[in-house]
């Protein structure tokens, strides 16, 4: 099987996941850090707007020691994990159903697209009635953020599986489930994962909107509170932590993607 697929692979499949060259990847952040240092040293911006890196570091250390940072991060990670889990699972199912069955697509696509266009914040007042203002509302909003990109990419990914693959499977007389498990899903992994990883980014973005709402904990709340209290070091610290957590989450997904794509290099 792998021999049959080896031929078109090089042309059809984009380059598989590759470990980034670390020293090069660090160049841009380092340049950013340097500019930041110079900007604060030279007083290009008032410290009220852009605090010095050392100050942000001190704030991070203080938040860590008081345990606030861990609790804020845990709250947010919990909300993102739940919302993303639900949203991504629903998006995979929905996207696959819409790709495989034209009838499901006909029924659902227009409504889905219409709903997808509305920013999550628009649903809040409506959702508040049935869901209350507790965790359920937050998780649902985060799940919606993941649902849309995952669905769209899953559908597009499955639709884009080369006809040749399916024809070969047909020649081998694969059953429908075999076709799905051994041909369609593996070939659609890269676009699906694009959707999943983009969905995760959307979740983090929705998180801030959600934590504005009826909460006094979480990294999004930390950002909003820092801005409200004009403590920009808190805001920058929040940005750094969200970026770091997001990076780790995305890296985990990338590893998973690589594992699922072992057939490419086999």
């Amino acid at each position: 099987m792998s021999a049959t697929l080896a031929l078109p692979r090089r042309k059809l499949a984009p380059t598989a996941w590759r470990r980034p060259g670390w020293p090069v990847a660090l160049l841009l952040p380092l340049a950013g850090l340097l500019t930041w240092l110079v900007a604060t040293r030279a007083g290009w911006l008032t410290p009220a707007i852009l605090p010095a890196p050392a100050e942000v570091w001190a704030t991070l250390a203080e938040l860590w020691q008081s345990g606030d940072l861990q609790s804020h991060a845990l709250w947010s990670m919990g909300r993102v994990a739940q919302g993303f889990g639900i949203g991504a699972a629903a998006g995979l199912a929905l996207g696959a159903a819409m790709a495989v069955s034209p009838r499901v697509d006909d029924y659902l696509r227009p409504s889905f697209l219409a709903i997808a266009q509305v920013p999550v914040i628009g649903w809040v007042p409506l959702l508040m009635l049935p869901l209350g203002i507790g965790e359920a509302l937050k998780v649902v909003i985060i799940a919606k953020a993941a649902l849309v990109p995952v669905t769209i990419n899953t559908q597009a990914g499955i639709r884009a599986v080369p006809r040749g693959f399916v024809e070969v499977a047909g020649a081998f007389r694969y059953s429908r489930s075999q076709l799905l498990r051994h041909v369609v899903l593996p070939a659609a992994i890269p676009p699906i994962f694009t959707g999943i990883r983009y969905g995760l980014t959307s979740c983090w973005k929705a998180l801030v909107a959600v934590e504005l709402l009826a909460s006094a904990e979480g990294l999004g709340f930390l950002l909003v509170w820092g801005r409200q209290m004009f403590q920009m070091d808190l805001v920058v610290a929040g940005i750094v932590v969200i970026a770091a957590v997001g990076f780790v989450f995305d890296g985990t997904l990338a590893l998973l993607e690589r594992r699922l794509q072992r057939w490419r290099t086999a």
Partner: peptide, 19 residues
């Protein structure tokens, strides 16, 4: 049990009896 809500959200929460 304090809930942090802006004015618009607190109106909605009051009207829907969530607080």
């Amino acid at each position: 049990r304090v809930i942090n809500l802006d004015f618009a959200a607190s109106d909605a929460a009051l009207a829907s009896r969530n607080i």
